[in-house]
């Protein structure tokens, strides 16, 4: 890590702590995420994963320590950042069509209506939803709605994408399809991604690196692991690899708080 240059550090957390009143949620989190990395944050429920993500997104003021994105300290919602929330049903605006939902963040870029629509259609095509542009979110399945949310997050070409248990409420098949879509987007766009999940398998399958938080209160990082799997990730092949099984066991032990 010592050889990473400043430009490489997309996201830097230094001794970050967070508490609600007397309740310490996060304690002394120090973490450097180089540009282009897909980092998974795993931990038992209630360990403050979402709090960490909301703090990075500037939705909560930083309690202790500092967070910098691309060298700039986070004080509000940073530019060039996008977030995908778990609850797609609430995160999308039901009164707008799928296309208008996706085009919404483009308004501040000063694009005309036609350009915004064209751009929204392009990104919808990218996530496999070109046929659904004129429908409303509530007319789509859960998996399709989350694809809309991903399209809306990607439409402004963010350099940092935060995802808060994005596939947690989807069925297994849909979830695997979306994991592969995410990997494909990551490969082609090179976006830095912080992916929060409580699913150990998912973290190892999706991540370049997995960080495990201890159970709260005062969660801290208990494991920081590079994921090196041979070959391209494949739902069937990768999950059967001995490397995958070993990594999964290691993450699993850390999540359960057992010594290695």
């Amino acid at each position: 890590m010592s050889h990473t240059t400043t430009e490489d550090r997309m996201l830097q957390l230094s001794s970050v702590g967070q508490h609600y009143g007397d309740h310490q949620v996060l304690h002394d989190i120090t973490l450097t995420v180089p540009a282009g990395q897909l980092l998974c944050v795993v931990g038992p429920s209630g360990c403050g994963k979402s709090t960490l993500l909301r703090t990075i997104a500037g939705l909560l003021p930083v309690g202790e320590g500092t967070i910098t994105i691309d060298g700039t300290p986070v004080t509000g919602v940073p530019d060039q950042l996008a977030v995908v929330f778990q609850d797609y049903g609430r995160s999308l605006f039901p009164w707008l069509t799928v296309r208008d939902n996706v085009a919404l963040p483009l308004r501040r870029r000063g694009l005309g209506r036609t350009e915004r629509r064209a751009e929204a259609d392009r990104i919808l095509d990218r996530v496999g939803l070109s046929g659904a542009a004129r429908r409303h979110p509530w007319q789509l399945s859960g998996g399709m709605q989350q694809r809309v949310a991903i399209a809306r997050a990607l439409v402004c070409r963010p350099t940092l994408l935060l995802m808060d248990e994005p596939f947690g409420s989807l069925d297994a098949q849909t979830r695997e399809d979306l994991e592969d879509l995410l990997l494909e987007v990551h490969r082609t766009e090179g976006t830095t991604i912080v992916f929060v999940t409580h699913d150990i398998d998912e973290s190892v399958y999706v991540g370049d690196r997995v960080v495990v938080l201890s159970p709260g209160p005062g969660s801290k990082i208990v494991l920081d692991l590079s994921v090196r799997l041979p070959g391209e990730r494949d739902q069937i092949v990768s999950r059967g690899l001995p490397e995958f099984v070993a990594l999964r066991a290691e993450v699993g032990r850390a999540v359960r708080g057992q010594a290695m």
Binding site: G58, L81, A82, F85, D87, R90, F93, W95, L104, R107
Partner: peptide
Amino acid sequence: TDPLRLDVAAVLRLNTAERLWFLVLP
């Protein structure tokens, strides 16, 4: 107004008028 949607509006960096028109009013 759904607090999660207000977070979404913040993350999408909608300005006040957009937030009222696209979120609060509907």
